[in-house]
Structures are given as structure tokens and as C-alpha cells.
Amino acid sequence: MRSIVMVILTALMAFVAGCRGAPLYSIRVEETHKDVLRVAVAVDRPLSIHEYHRIAEDELRFVLKGARRYEVPVYEVRFEYFAPVEGTVAAERVAAYIWRPDDARPVHTTFQSNTETVPP
């Protein structure tokens, strides 16, 4: 009995030790074009492809909801992921993901200019 408990405890400790916490991240949404949104995701470390995808799926609902509220047409949402560079305060782009509606048509189209024209 005692050996079974020890085995279970060891397995549990190994599991806990092997687990990394859920990724921490913050996002910033920008309207880079009249129908394109850019979501800059600052992650605490480089992640797996699945984790990048899951973050995009989680955030997309809120991003689209906000776009509808402000009547921003959305043809494309570009997710860009940035992670800290070891030993510096800088961050580097580590991954990207582009989302488009399935039918390749915008969620909402007004085709009205809603951004200022600013030369670079």
C-alpha cells in the first residue's frame, strides 16, 4: 500500500515539476489599414504553435467584437507575437498568424475611409 502511495506521489511530483504554467501575455490592437487589424501579443517566452493558435482563437472573439462595435471593416487580423530576448530588455518577433474570415469577405464592410492619411 505504502509503495503504491509513493509511486502516485512520485508521479504527481514529476507531473507538477514538468508542467510549465499557462503562458502570460498582453495584447495591443492597432488598425494598420482600413480593413486590417494588427494584434501585437507580448508573450513571456517563445511558445508552441498550438499555444500561439490558442491565444489567437481566444483573443479573436474580443477583437472582432470591438471591431463591430466601432464599425471597423475587417478583412484580415494579423497576430504578431513578441518574446523577450534573453539578457536584454528588447523583444523580438517570434511568430505570426493571419486570420481571415472563411469566405474571404469582410465581417463588416463600409469601404469608408476611417483613418487619417499620414505620410510615413
Binding site: H33, K34, V36, Y75, E76, E116, P120
Partner: peptide, 8 residues
Amino acid sequence: SAKPTIVN
């Protein structure tokens, strides 16, 4: 280019 446009 940095000028916003319609991409669709």
C-alpha cells in the same frame, strides 16, 4: 507602405 488603405 504605411499609408492606410483598403486591402480586401
